[in-house]
């Protein structure tokens, strides 16, 4: 029987400076500083752990949540890093070490997500907003499943022989479960798939 190929999976929290607005009793400045530091610590932790893996960077292919197949993946990563994304800044560091960034997502599906967000963010009354939030949750979950399927095909279709894939994916994705058929998935940080009741039964 053929050995499964190793795949490094990094579950990420889409936490940039967004975390700072979460509810807390701390004064605003303190809250921002505390939560920014938590996000920084998280990325420092991921970086240290990945560093410790001593990966063969020149044979490493990166697959990144939100990075579409578009032909100018590197320029886009630079632009997103400049806009303040610690995730993409870290990806650039890995590229500098010799890793390759692969276009990962279907552009059409990302546009659909963008449209869904547009709809959610349109102003409406309190009751309507609740219904809109619920609708968003349902539709975004469906879209996520389609995105995961595309990414899975992308990984299996683009990975060269002897290359090592490293996948950065938001915690809401269930891609890791799909990858387990073809790869031996090693997690870089702890996986806590408890956001939805469904995950217990699909685990």
């Amino acid at each position: 029987m053929e050995d499964l190929r190793r795949l490094i999976y990094v579950p990420i929290l889409h936490a940039q400076d967004d975390a700072k607005h979460k509810a807390s009793s701390l004064p605003k400045n303190q809250k921002i500083a505390k939560e920014l530091s938590a996000v920084d610590e998280m990325w420092a932790g991921i970086a240290a752990k990945i560093e410790g893996l001593n990966l063969p960077w020149k044979q490493t292919r990166i697959y990144q949540d939100g990075a579409p197949v578009c032909g100018n993946e590197l320029t886009l990563a630079k632009r997103l890093a400049e806009s303040g994304s610690p995730n993409f800044s870290f990806i650039l560091d890995l590229i500098n070490k010799g890793a390759t960034l692969e276009g990962t997502e279907d552009m059409d599906l990302l546009i659909q997500e963008y449209d869904l967000l547009n709809k959610l963010l349109m102003k409406s009354s309190g009751t309507n907003q609740k219904a809109k939030n619920a609708e968003y949750h349902t539709k975004s979950r469906e879209l996520l499943a389609l995105r995961d399927q595309f990414i899975l095909n992308r990984i299996t279709g683009t990975l060269e022989k002897d290359e090592l894939p490293i996948v950065f994916m938001g915690v809401m994705h269930r891609l890791d479960k799909m990858l387990e058929k073809d790869f031996l998935v090693s997690y870089v940080i702890y996986r806590l798939p408890f956001r939805s009741i469904g995950t217990i039964y699909n685990a």
Partner: peptide, 22 residues
């Protein structure tokens, strides 16, 4: 609900850059 909207705004901003640049 507030943080859902806030997260949505941030994701929206990232996707806006992504779609434009791509």
């Amino acid at each position: 609900a507030d943080s859902l909207i806030w997260d949505a705004k941030k994701r929206h901003a990232l996707l806006e850059i992504t779609i434009r640049e791509a």
